[in-house]
């Protein structure tokens, strides 16, 4: 067991080596590609701060109207980027394999599973999460019609799948796939609700659709 060593290096001052390395690697970073040495560095276990610099790539995208200029590892999914780095925890991890829909967000207007989306593939894209449906403090702000409808029809219980259901529901109407309850059920089937609020969710979506509010 040598976790103390790791703890030491974690706390140790490796800024200088990192700075030197970053200087050397700036040309490589400009290629928008992690150089092969990064993988080698990881496998040989060289200074991890250097590895960190090597592993990361630039990413620029717009999230909820805000331009984000980031530096991330290519293996970071959009879901983990949102939750663990950008403090947007409204988007949930339910399965991490595209099998439940809790992580649904909009990328360039299309609903997708953010858990199977490498963040790097969203370069230049516009991402909307549940936090982006409204502006301001969630406790007081004016809600989106779909959010209002979910409250009115009690379209949730534990609430964990709810952000994904709502993002999916908004897209469902925008896509034109909310014409009948049957169609809604089919096109919402990528969002699992284990509490079983389905019937109320369908009612909420049909209500919004019928009222014709702009979603």
């Amino acid at each position: 067991m040598n976790d103390t060593e790791n703890l030491d290096s974690e706390l140790g001052n490796s800024t200088s080596s990192r700075r030197i390395f970053l200087k050397q690697s700036s040309a490589l970073a400009a290629l928008a590609m992690t150089p092969p040495t990064a993988v080698a560095a990881v496998n040989t276990g060289i200074q991890e701060k250097i590895a960190t610099a090597l592993e990361q790539m630039p990413l620029r995208l717009t999230i909820n109207g805000k331009v984000q200029q980031l530096s991330i590892e290519p293996r970071v999914t959009l879901l983990d980027l949102l939750r663990e780095q950008l403090h947007l925890t409204g988007t949930k991890k339910g399965c991490d394999h595209g099998q439940c829909g809790a992580c649904t967000v909009h990328v360039d207007g299309a609903r997708v599973n953010s858990c199977l989306t490498l963040a790097m593939t969203t370069e230049g894209c516009t991402v909307t999460t549940i936090e982006g449906l409204t502006v301001g403090d969630p406790a007081t702000t004016l809600l989106h019609p779909m959010q209002e409808a979910f409250i009115k029809h009690d379209g949730f219980q534990c609430g964990y799948c709810t952000p994904g259901q709502i993002m999916s529901a908004v897209a469902c109407i925008r896509e034109g796939h909310a014409n009948t309850p049957e169609e809604v059920r089919e096109y919402m089937s990528g969002n699992i609700c284990r509490c079983g609020a389905y019937a109320n969710i369908v009612n909420a979506i049909m209500d919004v659709k019928k009222k014709g509010a702009r979603v």
């Binding site: 649904t104 299309a110 599973n113 199977l116 897209a171 896509e175 089919e186 089937s189 990528g190």
Partner: peptide
């Protein structure tokens, strides 16, 4: 196509 996966996965 519509019988496969989910709306989200079909968008991807």
């Amino acid at each position: 196509l519509n019988a496969g996966a989910s709306a989200q996965l079909r968008n991807m």
